[in-house]
Design a binder for these strands. Structure first.
Lengths: 337, 337
DNA sequence: TGGCCATTTGACAGCGCTGTCTTTTCGTCC
DNA sequence: GGACGAAAAGACAGCGCTGTCAAATGGCCA
């Protein structure tokens, strides 16, 4: 069970271990013929360098951290999928860690973690990426990081993001294109950055189309199924209904849909419904929910690549805008009136 | 930024580094007073041993692998949550890896991975835990592993599991207790171990209650939303409906619910609906789904603890049965007829 | 053919810890 | 009080690799 080491490769190739090291690390100053010999030996022995030894001896550990805070396992799973595939493509490994502890010892926690596992960088999904103490702790220990959809201190580190405002604008425009004029909006928490942008997009689209938003048509939700139900009840359990409801996220849209089912209000026959996120649940309800697809896994993959290549290219972009997609499904249709 | 090493601790405590090492590893042959001195120094310097150095020098790496195959990000997320908390409690770290490649190079893939990252063990969730080539590869490299809900070769390694048969029995008994006599069942893929056990539980419960299962009352599904819809249509779009439908998993139950909504069949007024899994979507539909809760995160946590303590206690149990819970929600009620 | 410089290769130390083996310390008994 | 043996502590090598610096090689021109 003694495993193959760099010495074995060096012996077989008839060179020194340093030369093997150079080839493996794509360093210059190796003759093409020598490189070939080494690579052949590596191939023949199926040699793989040991990350622990590399981390100990060198300046890179080939380990990236993925920190979680988000309570949604579905979202986390997608993030992770993207990060994993980026890692696999570049020989990095992903260490996941829950960072849910409260407050003041975060600085110490990070320091301890970094002393134990020397990470080459950290991936921060929301809402973790917006906690100033975390960023400060990482900066203090000089640990590089990327952020996914951050909303504050954008200049501090590279990040990927989505244009929530534009996405909400386009969804609203799509509803208008179906013929809807009386559209209601269920907003998310006002201190939530993306929620505010989505609201702006809706408002702007209505203004640009010259459509008035009737009083009471904008409800304040909390991004939860329950809050969606409550807002949905106010909007639907009355004679004066909007013809379309655009909820700031899918959970709230599903809350509205539940209310509609309960009140026997046909979707999309009587009222059109749209959400935002394309959560897994969006396709396991009937009618399937028209929504905005966020490319969560792609965002994580791009973010991870950004992190890995951060030192390589100096002219690496610091921010990367990701595409969204309006997913038209069965919950939307032309107005009946 | 030069970090604190074991030498610093040894100097401060006035002992040799070996003694510090002994204290940190809970080895015997250290006087209580010496231990205290060392621990005080560790505390004062906030020292943390470096895993790479430990892995390189010793026989343990403090790294566990969590391999994924499962396409469901929600399930993965829960598994991960459980595994992470077990790791955090015992100073281990979790490396996640996608193992979705097909077939024959799996052996080589594992070997390469193990050469690179010397893992102390691997956690295998379903359906990965049932791939014989994977188990063979791990055995060949002498990598310890635990399995979550495995269905074959149970003697090969420790595992945690749930009694699907009993859970389905209890759910069926619950439906019977509401007064239902004409209960339909939507089965999962017959080659799926848990699906078969659930079917058995249903059958047994009906037999024990002396209730006949009418012809056509057991439909063959595929664990997907779509297959649930198809089966639901056959069961509901007819005069001769069952009063209750028990689907082998939540996705199929939600498919049935979608059909019921479309056909304006009241749930639970006209037909009672039950699922299995307690997937996240089960609570974002209306009515919320009565289902069996699988303690996925707990299972992963217990599995991880089993792996970590595998060498410690010789009398460690090889298998661990986990509890389930029948979650009674709004989709079930007494029959109307 | 020899000498000079740029390029390629190698020797060696050491990263921070653990495993093995040796030395020291301490308690105990005659 | 000295000898003995067990318990405690330390010395030292080395895990598998990279970084630094020194040595060897080769190309080119005189």
């Amino acid at each position: 069970m003694a495993s193959i080491t760099i010495d074995d490769v060096a012996d077989l190739a008839g060179v020194s271990i340093k030369t093997v090291s150079r080839v493996l690390n794509r360093e210059p100053h190796v003759r093409a013929a020598t490189r070939e010999k080494v690579l052949a030996a590596v191939e023949q022995l199926n040699y793989r360098p040991n990350v622990s030894a590399r981390a100990l001896a060198g300046s890179r550990s080939y380990l990236l951290g993925l920190f979680f805070d988000n309570p949604s396992p579905g979202y986390n799973g997608q993030i992770e999928q993207g990060a994993m595939s980026a890692c696999r493509n570049s020989g990095y490994y992903l260490i996941v860690e829950q960072m849910t502890e409260i407050g003041d010892d975060l600085q110490k926690r990070i320091a301890a973690f970094h002393a134990t596992v020397r990470l080459d960088g950290v991936i921060l999904p929301p809402p973790l990426c917006d906690r100033p103490e975390l960023l400060a702790a990482l900066d203090a220990d000089r640990i590089p990081y990327v952020r996914i959809a951050p909303t504050i201190s954008l200049e501090r580190a590279p990040y990927v993001y989505m244009d929530d405002r534009k996405a909400a604008y386009e969804m609203t425009a799509y509803l208008q294109s179906l013929g809807h004029k009386d559209i209601a909006f269920i907003a998310g928490p006002s201190d939530h950055y993306a929620a505010a942008r989505r609201r702006e997009g809706f408002d702007q689209a209505m203004r640009d189309a010259g459509l008035a938003v009737k009083p009471g048509r904008v409800q304040q939700g909390a991004f939860s199924f329950r809050s969606g139900s409550e807002c949905g009840e106010k909007l639907l359990d009355t004679r004066d209904r909007p013809t379309a409801i655009f909820a700031g996220n899918d959970d709230m849209a599903l809350g509205v849909m539940a209310v509609a089912n309960r009140l026997h209000i046909d979707v999309p026959g009587t009222v059109t419904l749209a959400g935002f996120d394309d959560s897994p649940s969006a396709q396991v309800v009937w009618p399937q929910l028209t929504t905005v697809r966020q490319p969560v896994a792609d965002m994580a993959q791009v973010a991870t690549e950004l992190l890995i290549n951060a030192d390589r290219d100096d002219d690496m972009p610091r921010a990367r805008l990701m595409d969204f997609e309006v997913m038209v499904r069965q919950s939307s249709g032309p107005p009946s009136r």
